[in-house]
Design a protein around this nucleic acid. Structure first.
Lengths: 149, 149
DNA sequence: GCGCTATGATTGCGCATGCAATCATGAAGA
DNA sequence: TCTTCATGATTGCATGCGCAATCATAGCGC
């Protein structure tokens, strides 16, 4: 191990790489999902997260945490999706403060349509990033993550 | 290699991990830098990127690319920092369409103050993330990135 | 030199976000 | 039961962002 400052600089470097890769991918996803399905990345995430739940529902709180947004942003995000009929709210029967959100049939349909776009854009973005020397190592590391399972 | 769908799911999984880690770190950096130095993460990035240049300056275009923001966002970001005296604009002498931005003395001072905060929060955030099983592998991979140098 | 297109940066506008305050419900204690 | 505090969600407000249109300068062909 080098000097403490070296370690800090290494972490900062890693963070810059992570942030750059993230921003580029998100940018492309945002554009593609928006144009082809009228969904923002956040909106897609919500549908995706909910659909991935065994019983398709989650409380607002858990949802905020899952998509890493503030409570207020989550409220409005859910409003937008509810207005479009992609999900439904309903009161938690045991604690009426809590509110569950649940993807609707229409929501799952839209998600099914958007998923291929999402995957294709993601794959393309990763390939493009792999060509940039400063991002390639992270792309590589990312690819190896799930092999451990 | 598994079925194509497996590969796509693996990439999606990697992306979710990356996005989650990024969001958590950025969240904490944002709060800490804002509270202690009145800087957003974007603003910090601009100062950091500029200070890292050999001659401390960059064109608007390059800056947009470096911080992965739109041109308009970059214009306004630079406006804010210029208003606070943290950087200066000046016309490119050879091409008067181009505009250089350069950190000022005050900008470097503020950056010097903010850097320790940045590093400390980053370190803490990474440690916290390493405790979450779903993020730990990526944190680990990130740590190994710069060792290859 | 004069138009035409390309490039770099800025501005108008609508929208999503975070913070802080607020409202609604639940839980605990006198 | 009534009060008080904690928890979950929503709303008012200010702000930063992206897109598209615009302005300024450069470069090319005539």
């Amino acid at each position: 191990m080098g000097l403490p400052d070296d370690a800090a600089e290494a972490r900062a470097q890693g963070w810059r790489t992570l942030a750059a890769l993230h921003a580029r991918i998100e940018d492309e996803l945002e554009r593609a999902l928006q144009k082809q399905h009228g969904l923002s990345v956040s909106e897609y995430s919500v549908l995706d997260v909910l659909a991935r739940q065994d019983d398709y529902h989650l409380r607002m709180n858990q949802l905020s945490n899952a998509v890493v947004l503030s409570q207020s942003a989550t409220t409005r995000l859910v409003n937008r999706l509810e207005d479009r009929g992609l999900l439904q709210r309903y009161l938690c029967p045991t604690d009426r403060r809590g509110i569950y959100t649940e993807v609707t049939e229409a929501g799952r349909d839209l998600l099914d349509q958007a998923q291929p776009t999402h995957d294709a854009v993601l794959t393309a973005a990763l390939e493009k990033a792999a060509d940039l020397p400063e991002l390639a190592p992270l792309v590589d590391a990312l690819g190896k993550l799930s092999l451990k399972v």
